[in-house]
């Protein structure tokens, strides 16, 4: 893998990911996640639902934004992706968070790469949704839809496990074992990446997790929290 892509894989890339628990903080607060087995079930639930939607949007953005022929076509596509992703994220708080994470990713990415696609996603009012920003960034770094899918799943898995280490003090080695096991499941979903890459945004998957959205809203109302979501 090229150095440029590795930069985006690394959790130390300064894009604000360290303050994102992918719902683990709220799930722990209500007692749904208490130990390593419950965390693994939570993670499997996420990757099969909203995780796959995020991966699909990252793949689609990565592949299609770089094919847009001119600035107008690019703006239309970005607006379309934005609308479709919003429609798949019922929780206002999670939409807000997704835009915030996208904005933070693009802050660093625009200092490194200046492609038309990066310019177009950076222009989204309030910030592009995170998976769309990620797709554009992966393309700028020379990656393809398959890479974007892998990165999207990797960031979700890493956010969930590292938040659990910090919030619950779970054993990081045991969690690395979980991450490897769940990672193989993610690799299985990646066979869809080629199909996701060529779809119209409206046709992208819309697997939802009601609990994800409810926990997201719950997180937004917690008066004591350490993570943004």
């Amino acid at each position: 893998m090229d150095a440029a892509l590795l930069l985006l894989v690394d959790g130390r890339f300064p894009a604000g990911g360290h303050a994102y628990s992918a719902g683990v903080e709220a799930a722990a607060a209500v007692g749904d996640v208490v130990d390593t087995p419950t965390l693994e079930r939570y993670l499997l639930g996420r990757i099969a639902t909203t995780g796959r939607v995020d991966a699909a949007f990252a793949a689609n953005s990565c592949a299609r934004l770089q094919c847009a022929t001119d600035a107008d076509a690019l703006a239309v596509l970005v607006a379309n992706l934005d609308e479709e992703y919003s429609a798949r994220t019922p929780s206002p708080y999670l939409r807000h968070t997704s835009r915030r994470l996208g904005r933070q990713l693009l802050r660093a990415v625009t200092r490194i790469w200046t492609t038309p696609a990066i310019g177009a996603v950076s222009a989204v009012a309030g910030g592009a949704h995170q998976p769309i920003a990620l797709g554009a960034a992966v393309a700028a770094a020379g990656g393809d839809a398959n890479d974007a899918t892998a990165l999207s799943f990797h960031h979700l898995t890493a956010a969930v496990t590292s938040a659990a280490v910090r919030l619950l003090g779970l054993d990081p080695i045991e969690l690395a074992v979980v991450q490897e096991r769940v990672g193989r499941r993610c690799d299985g979903f990646r066979s869809d990446a080629t199909e996701w890459a060529s779809m119209a945004p409206a046709d992208l998957p819309a697997w939802g997790g009601s609990l994800t959205e409810i926990l997201g809203e719950h997180h937004g109302s917690l008066d004591a929290r350490m993570f943004v979501a």
């Binding site: 894009a15 303050a19 990713l105 802050r107």
Partner: peptide, 21 residues
């Protein structure tokens, strides 16, 4: 207010994205 995800020094030193935002 900015949330720091358990890591006050990370948010001001290593990954300043949320604070800059």
């Amino acid at each position: 207010a900015v949330e720091t995800g358990c890591c006050p020094h990370t948010a001001i030193r290593d990954d300043i994205a949320a604070n800059l935002d």
